[in-house]
Nucleic acid binder design. Structure first.
Lengths: 313, 313
DNA sequence: CTTGATACG
DNA sequence: CGTAGCAAG
């Protein structure tokens, strides 16, 4: 991690800055400069993947800087996966998981409803060494597509996180040697293509849209093994995907390449133009179907509300 | 570990220097100065406990300095326990274990037969947190007493190692808070008393004999927890026990207090006066009973010869 | 390579 | 507190 963060420009007054960051253990990242990064970046909303937290680590980030903090921890495997979202903006609602029993035990999804959009923070399951969990991953991708569609019935979506896929050859340094590696199988790539969809109801990979020619500048992950970072052997695994109607408001997506060191991923930032209604009280979400494990928004950790399907409680 | 070892006197020409050292992982100890210590100490024979080696680590210590190297590694739990002996003197025979099925799977005993004595290098099993393995430990102590008696039928014994007991109150800093702690239970203390025995056929705790008043200077173990070393909260767990007839030849036992750092134990050194017959070819051992897993002495690792009782091969 | 959890000391 | 080995990425 750098010691000075002069390269981080001030957020324009007409924008929100949203950040996604796979921290590969929040505790470890804190020892390696995460807090200094967060102070310098100072986004309006930040979502973290692989916190590896077993319960909310409230002490790590000040409630003053981020009054709204949400945690989703794995209930099955300790010290595994886990997500968190810290926000300066109060969400109208927060929910945990996909509302799909069997997919909600590892703390992978937190959804915040803001005034004009849903913010879905996600850590997509890795297909595993030798693709042992590829089937489960494919199932996940399908369910996530449905979930986003459900949300889009009310508002457009910002879908952010470590999506654990390099979509195209341009998105990783070594496509040819990774055709059957987790994150670049045809199944995962097609799954992402399907999730993006096409036409009027499609979703957009905001970084690709704005930086179509980006190569290594777009990589967000550099494995610790074999000096990948120095050799620029990276993958683009972290994304902001937005519902098409929202794309007009996306000013830019930045890959914080300089911020390598606290994790094997780097943070990515999305600048989203503010719009009327953003900080207003939101209308209540409508259908049961699109509201898994809904809670009335309130500050504080929440880590035991998922795993049940809509309609089961 | 110190950087200079000026405090280590040259070994007198009429003596052997034998060393025992619980290294708490030989690999880790090597990163923390073990090799430098060994070069400076330069004993004739050194026995190590808790090597945590899964196979002979021949590369760690030069065959030139120690042409005779013997390893006894745990066969059940990986990275657990394990002993080794390095010698400049060629032993007539080497054997592994106690010849007691059930006690020989963890690589805890190596016996070298020299010209005038048997050298038994041992890592006695810890009774465990909450004394969960105290019964097994008591069984061990009994069997070890028998084993030494069997050896003594031919030659006196030097029994060295981490015996995992503080014999008397003087042997640990906090006797009163450790009456039911592993290493200071009445069962373990009585077991050691019984092993020493009395009268003509007794064995002698050489350090106690020569330094009866020693307090903290005698401690050989300082747990890593709670700054035990700085507070001198230690235990004397490492011993040289000699068959009574050998005590006349024991010039001194030194606890190398300065050598803390490569391990949570410190090395101990015994100076043994040379005698006629020491480096001569030894007479063949006689009875089956006292010869578990005997091999003809030869340089090189040996890690799969124990676990069978005498007479089974 | 790095993390966390576990067993053991 | 520190080591090893494991699973995971």
């Amino acid at each position: 991690m750098p010691k000075v963060y002069d390269f981080i420009a001030a957020t324009p007054g007409n924008c929100y800055k949203l950040v996604s960051y796979n921290v590969n253990s929040l505790q470890a990242a804190c020892k390696k400069g995460f807090k200094e990064y967060l102070s310098a970046e100072n986004p309006d909303v930040i979502c973290l993947q692989e916190t590896k937290a077993n319960q909310p680590m409230a002490f790590l980030v000040s409630k003053k800087q981020y009054p709204f903090q949400y945690w989703h921890c794995s209930k099955t495997k300790k010290g595994y996966a886990g997500t968190a979202v810290f926000s300066k903006i109060e969400p109208a609602r927060v929910s945990y998981g996909l509302g799909a029993s069997g997919l909600d035990t590892e703390g992978r999804v937190i959804t915040l409803e803001f005034g004009t959009f849903h913010f879905v923070a996600c850590y997509v399951p890795n297909a595993g060494e030798k693709l042992v969990r590829l089937a489960r991953r494919v199932e996940w991708d399908v369910r996530m597509g449905e979930y986003l569609t459900e949300l889009e019935a009310t508002k457009p979506v910002v879908y952010a996180g470590d999506l654990n896929v390099a979509h195209h050859e341009i998105d990783l340094a070594r496509p040819d040697t990774n055709r059957r590696s987790a994150g670049f199988t045809v199944e995962e790539r097609d799954g992402f293509t399907a999730l993006l969809g096409d036409g009027e109801h499609s979703r957009i990979d905001a970084f690709r849209k704005l930086h179509p020619e980006a190569l290594a500048e777009g990589y967000t992950y550099f494995g610790y093994r074999a000096n990948c970072r120095e050799k620029s052997v990276g993958w683009r695994l972290d994304y902001f995907v937005v519902s098409r109607p929202l794309m007009d408001r996306v000013i830019d997506v930045i890959v914080r390449n300089e911020c390598y060191g606290a994790s094997d991923h780097v943070p990515i930032a999305l600048y989203l133009e503010k719009a009327d209604g953003d900080e207003a009280e939101s209308a209540p979400a409508s259908s049961d179907v699109c509201a898994p494990q809904i809670e009335a928004a309130s500050a504080g950790g929440k880590d035991d509300s998922s795993g049940s399907s809509p309609g089961h409680d």
